[in-house]
């Protein structure tokens, strides 16, 4: 069932039970929840783009300052919360902040849901205490690398985050620790790659994603992601040129920190990190004029 319908049903139930609407549970307090459906734009995860979209415009981010808490939806102070925050809230309310803070590490309290994808035996969503070693997520909860293969690399925080290697498996799942290891915990999406993975191809797909999702507002993101996608296509498909990895790095310099919002910046992080760790694979693609991993693709199960 599409999520909108699930949510509408839940809201109806809440309304029927008197949890929302007029005079909530006889308290004299009115509050209601309106479900406003988006229409396909990753950029609307950026809080100001979300507000712009709610106002009916193209989901383009706005200048900050003013921040939404000062001037947000319809120019009014607005709190923007992620689903993750809202989902955690009832448990904290029910069990108390001390209960929540007792879990996790001193710098990362409580729990977090990790969405694990890629080459593990049991992909899916796992809620773990902050600080749990990455090794435990992948090997215990995820059942280890599929097909008895070994781990090549993983991306710990979602589509933009820098790649990490097997040597980082004992890093704890919390913001500080992952940052110290050279990546970010970001959105909590853990993508696992086995030894047969073409890292160039993974980066290519991610860059094409950012190219597709760039709103087009600012020059570096609009033009840069398009150019990077072209470069990744040609490297992956055996037409890369020797200077391409360095060109990609230089484009990272011109996009990261220069874009209007973090989408453009973030589009460069994974590519740059894989060039750092797997430069030889780029060279191999270019020299051999083909993807060295092409033969190892999965067939449809």
């Amino acid at each position: 069932m599409p999520q909108t319908e699930l949510l509408e049903t839940a809201l109806e139930e809440a309304r029927a039970a008197g949890y929302i609407g007029r005079n909530v549970l006889g308290s004299g307090f009115d509050v209601d929840v309106l479900l406003h459906r988006g229409a396909g734009a990753y950029i609307c995860g950026e809080e100001t783009a979300l507000l712009t979209s709610l106002e009916g415009y193209r989901g383009e981010p706005r200048l900050k300052p003013p921040f939404p808490a000062v001037k947000g939806l319809y120019g009014k102070p607005t709190v923007v919360n992620n689903v993750e925050t809202l989902a955690t809230l009832p448990h904290i309310v029910r069990n108390g902040p001390d209960w929540f803070a007792a879990m996790g590490t001193p710098t990362g309290k409580g729990t977090r849901v990790w969405c694990m994808s890629g080459h593990v035996n049991r992909p899916g969503n796992y809620e773990l205490e902050m600080g749990t070693p990455i090794r435990e997520l992948i090997y215990e909860h995820g059942g280890g690398i599929w097909k008895g293969r070994s781990l090549k690399a993983f991306q710990p925080g979602g589509a933009s985050m820098m790649v990490l290697l097997p040597e980082h498996l004992d890093v704890g799942l919390d913001f500080d620790a992952i940052a110290k290891a050279g990546s970010m915990a970001g959105a909590g999406a853990m993508m696992v790659m086995d030894e047969t993975t073409c890292i160039v191809d993974v980066a290519r797909r991610l860059v094409k994603f950012f190219e597709h999702e760039s709103c087009g507002k600012c020059t570096p993101c609009r033009e840069g992601t398009y150019w990077m996608a072209n470069l990744f296509d040609r490297i992956e498909f055996g037409e890369g040129k020797p200077g391409d990895p360095d060109l990609l790095l230089d484009m990272g310099y011109n996009i990261d920190g220069r874009s209007f919002c973090p989408l453009g910046d973030a589009s460069t992080w994974f590519p740059r990190s894989v060039i750092k760790y797997f430069r030889d694979e780029f060279e191999q693609h270019i020299v051999e004029k083909a993807c060295p991993f092409r033969g190892e693709r999965e067939a449809v199960a």
Partner: peptide
């Protein structure tokens, strides 16, 4: 035209979209 989910012309009765982003790419 900004959002990807609005279709502008009649197509098939059913819309089938395959995700080819990285996590799906890793699994075929």
């Amino acid at each position: 035209s900004f959002y990807s989910m609005f279709l502008t012309r009649p197509e098939g009765r059913h819309d089938v979209v395959i995700c080819v982003n990285a996590p799906c790419g890793l699994r075929g």
